[in-house]
């Protein structure tokens, strides 16, 4: 799985560029590179549904982010001196990575999952639903309540955007 490691390193480098670069539009483009690398990783890890979804969602997210940053007159941002915050953040991240490295040994090894619930879906999914795409049968038949909750969250987010951006009832500035 050498290509997986290469893509992960590419994503980490792109993420560091996105975090550290001063220009906001360059930062947004670098985050787009992270998302497209994630789409390629999904394809390598045998998840074509997720690859299509991530590719399309990334493009829409990029358009919305560029819309938010363009025409705002602050191309360069000043980070300022903030030593205590930097120090405590780095300390916390080091502690987190150390504990994570210890606890990762309890996970099943990469490539050999447990599949306790999913074995049932793999065995009975095609007979019970008749759908050839097993992900679709899990999303819309076995676990349709998840999809119902997702629809509720999406509806709430759309309503929130409409309420925040509307002009009716706002004071004249």
């Amino acid at each position: 799985m050498i290509e997986l490691h290469l893509l992960l390193l590419f994503m980490i480098v792109a993420a560091i560029i996105a975090v550290e670069v001063k220009d906001l539009i360059s930062s947004v483009v670098a985050v787009g590179a992270v998302g497209l690398g994630l789409s390629l990783i999904f394809l390598i890890l045998k998840a074509p549904d997720l690859a299509i979804t991530q590719l399309v969602v990334e493009i829409l997210c990029l358009i919305i982010l560029i819309r938010a940053t363009i025409k705002r007159d602050l191309p360069l941002i000043k980070s300022g001196r903030w030593h205590f915050n930097t120090f405590s953040t780095l300390l916390f991240i080091i502690i987190f990575l150390t504990l994570a490295y210890v606890s990762l040994k309890d996970l099943p090894a990469f490539g050999y999952p447990i599949l306790r619930v999913a074995a049932n879906y793999l065995k009975e999914g095609f007979i019970a639903t008749g759908a050839a795409n097993l992900v679709s049968s899990v999303v819309l038949d076995f676990r349709a309540y998840d999809t119902l909750g997702e629809a509720t969250v999406l509806f709430t987010a759309v309503m929130g955007v409409l309420v925040v951006m509307r002009r009716i009832g706002r004071k004249h500035e």
């Binding site: 549904d49 979804t53 999913a118 999303v139």
Partner: peptide, 28 residues
């Protein structure tokens, strides 16, 4: 086959992530 259950969970999470990002941008 690989595990279809986590793929189904992540499939909904991606779209929810886009919607929440849009809400955050509206607030910003």
């Amino acid at each position: 086959m690989v595990d279809p259950l986590v793929q189904a969970l992540v499939l909904t999470a991606i779209v929810i992530g886009l919607a929440t990002t849009a809400l955050l941008i509206a607030i910003a």
